[in-house]
Design a protein around this nucleic acid. Sequence first.
DNA 1: AGCGATTTTGAATAGTGATTCAATTTTAGA
DNA 2: TCTAAAATTGAATCACTATTCAAAATCGCT
Lengths: 191, 191
Amino acid sequence: MARYRSGIATRERILDATRLLLGRDGFDGTTVKGICQEARIQPGSFYNLFPSKDEAVLTVVREAITAVDPHPEGEGSDTIDELIHAYIRFITESPLAGVYLQLAVTAGLTDEHLKGRMLRHHHYRIHRFADAIGRDEPTMTRERARILAELVIAGLNGLAYQWALDPTFELMDHAWELADQLQIPRVTPQS
Amino acid sequence: MARYRSGIATRERILDATRLLLGRDGFDGTTVKGICQEARIQPGSFYNLFPSKDEAVLTVVREAITAVDPHPEGEGSDTIDELIHAYIRFITESPLAGVYLQLAVTAGLTDEHLKGRMLRHHHYRIHRFADAIGRDEPTMTRERARILAELVIAGLNGLAYQWALDPTFELMDHAWELADQLQIPRVTPQS
DNA sequence: AGCGATTTTGAATAGTGATTCAATTTTAGA
DNA sequence: TCTAAAATTGAATCACTATTCAAAATCGCT
C-alpha cells in the first residue's frame, strides 16, 4: 500500500505508536484516536495505510512473536529448549504478551477470522514443538511427541496466564519445572 | 437490596438473562440494554438491583463455578480426581467458561479490583489442589504439592484456552493425560 | 385505608468507539 | 516542469455504551 517514502515512514510511526499503547494500555485501552495522536497523524492517514485497527494490532503482535523466534525462517533446526526459552522470553520480555493472550482467548468468542488465524498459529507451534521433541528423542512415536507438545504448550500458556495476573509469579522456574515433570527430552540442561 | 417479592424475582430474571447472553455473546457482546430486553425490564430497574454491569456478570460467573464445586462449603474433603473432574465439567459444560477465561486474562490489564478477585480465587484453587494432592500422598512435602498443584492448574487452564479456540479439541483426554504425565497421585483411576 | 419503603418506568445524559470521505497537498518519475 | 499516484487533512458519520434520575406505580405492613 505504502509506495512513497513518506507513507512508509508514517506506517512505521503508526506501528511504533500501536506497540507503545498496546503494551501500556492493553487491547481495549488502545484506540485509533490514541494511535493517531501518538503518531501525530490524522485518522484518515491511518486508514490510508491500514484497513482496520485490528490489522495494525495483529501486525505488531506478529512482529513481537517473530522477534523471539529462534529460527524465524526455516523450521526443523530448533531444539525444545530453544522453543521453551523463546516462549518464556516472549511472555516475560514483550509488553505485548498480555495482548496476545487476550486476543487468543477473546478471538474464540467474537471474530471468526481472527479465530482462524490464532488457531493456525497455535497448530504451527504444536507442530514445531513436536518436531523438536521427536528430534531429541528419535525413538518416540510421532503421536506421543505431539501429545507431549500439546501438554507443554498448554502448560506454558497456563503459566503465562497466571503470570499476567500476578507479575511476581516465577514464570521461568515453573516453566522448566513443568518441562522436567512432563519428562520432556532435553539436550541441554536449563540455564 | 431487594426486599420485596417483586424485586427478588426481577433480580433472578436479570441473572437469567445475563447468564444466557454471556454464554451466547461473550462478555463484550453482552450489554445492559440486551440484558434489560431479555429480562423485560427497563435500565432503571437493573441499576436499582445491581450497582454495575460487572457486578451482575461476576455474580453469574461465580454461581457457575460454585455449581460444579464438589464440596462448595467445607474444603478439606475432596480428592484431586474430584477437583480435576470439576474443572473439566466447568469448562466443557458451562457456557460461561469462555467468559471466565476472558475475564481472568483481561482483568490483569484493566480493572485492578477485578484482578484482585480473580487472583484470590486462583490462589484458593491452588490451595485446594495442593491439599488434595497432599492427602493422597502424605509423604510429599507441602512445597512439592503446591508446585504440582500450580503445574496442574496451569496445564488445565492452558488446555481450556485451547478448547475455547477449538471445540473439537479433546479436553478431557488431554486433561487426564496431563495428570498422568505429571505423576499426580490419584486414588481412583480415570473414569 | 393509609403510609413509608421499594420497585419500575423511560427518557435523558454524556461519553465513547471505529470508520468514511471529499478536498488539499505532497511525492517521484518522465 | 508536468502529471498521475499517493499521502494527508479534519470534520463528519453512525452506532453504541453504561449509567442517572425524577416521577409514577406498587408493595407489604399496621
